[in-house]
């Protein structure tokens, strides 16, 4: 895991609130993410920026625009704070 772990965890927690734990946890394996029952990220496969991008794209494709918008401001803010390049899906406002 790399510096994107906090951002990925943030998205998982946020979606557990917005979409619910069942839908959120069901989608994570497709993005190569393993979490515990509380949504805490245990591991992921690949570069964090790409994993985060894939995760957000999957949520958007599966559950619509608001699944992405619900996370967007929080992720942008935290990425800026940590000086991390944004995933492509959030590259434009």
């Amino acid at each position: 895991m790399d510096a994107y772990k906090d951002l990925i965890s943030m998205v998982v927690r946020r979606e557990m609130g917005v979409l619910g734990p069942e839908k959120t946890l069901a989608l994570l394996p497709e993005a190569g993410i393993r979490v515990d029952a509380k949504g805490e990220v245990l591991s992921y496969t690949g570069p964090g920026r790409e994993v985060l991008d894939k995760l957000l794209r999957l949520f958007g494709e599966r559950y619509g625009l608001w699944a992405v918008v619900a996370c967007k401001i929080a992720v942008l803010k935290e990425a800026a704070r940590q000086n991390l390049p944004l995933p492509d899906i959030l590259g434009t406002k």
Partner: peptide, 25 residues
């Protein structure tokens, strides 16, 4: 208020996250 596709009448364990998403936007 909150965005809540997984809605319940009374706030559950993860309501704070859904509430933050709504207020941020």
């Amino acid at each position: 208020g909150a965005f809540s596709y997984d809605w319940s009448l009374y706030a559950g364990e993860y309501y704070d996250e859904a509430m933050k998403a709504f207020h941020e936007n």
